[in-house]
């Protein structure tokens, strides 16, 4: 299923942001649908580690590891989210997809400044969701970490984030 394609039929103001809300390690996380190429079941991926769709390989990204979250076992509700930004692709397994959320950019709250560690790179903000919150994952960071690992055998890629594809967020640009 191509999420962006499926939403084209529903006209909405250009400024709205859409997020796929998933649950990983018991936490609600939000993925900007601009970076999502597809959402597959494990069967649809052929149960392979690095799914290939239309000849494109989406290398597995371990989001739980990256965020130091507990690992979830694969289950009936497990889905594989295909991510892509420019030529960079990756996929993450999520034990549960909660749904899609459409928001005004102003509804994405900044991560409080008291969080001053590496997590400032991990998240693009906070969304009020149900009676809790969802953290907006910085997919550019996630995908670039994957590229770094593949290109340098685990060594960190030496590049500025500003060389990476930009994604609109909060009516501003990452770079």
């Amino acid at each position: 299923m191509d999420i962006q394609e499926s939403m084209r039929g529903a006209p909405s103001p250009v400024s709205l942001l859409r997020f796929l809300i998933v649950v990983v390690g018991g936490r609600y996380l939000a993925l900007n649908t601009e970076s999502i190429s597809g959402l597959l079941t494990l069967e649809e991926t052929g149960n392979v580690e690095n799914p290939t769709v239309h000849g494109m390989v989406y290398g597995t990204l371990n989001l739980a590891d990256r965020l130091s979250l507990s690992h979830d076992a694969d289950g009936a509700n497990t889905r594989v989210v295909l991510l892509s930004e420019g030529e960079t692709r990756g996929s993450i397994r999520v034990p549960m997809v909660q749904g899609l959320l459409e928001l005004q950019p102003i509804q994405v709250l900044p991560l409080p400044l008291q969080f001053h560690g590496a997590e400032r790179q991990w998240y693009r903000g906070v969304i009020l969701f149900a009676k809790t919150i969802a953290l907006v994952i910085n997919t550019t960071w996630l995908l670039n970490e994957q590229v770094s690992a593949l290109e340098s055998g685990g060594a960190r890629k030496h590049s500025s984030a500003c060389n990476d594809p930009t994604i609109s967020m909060n009516d501003s640009r990452i770079c």
């Binding site: 390690g25 409080p112 969080f115 001053h116 560690g117 997590e119 998240y123 906070v126």
Partner: peptide, 13 residues
């Protein structure tokens, strides 16, 4: 909130 900031590891709504 998963992160690396010592002693700031959660939020309240």
């Amino acid at each position: 909130v998963a992160g690396r900031t010592p002693f700031v590891t959660a939020v309240v709504r």
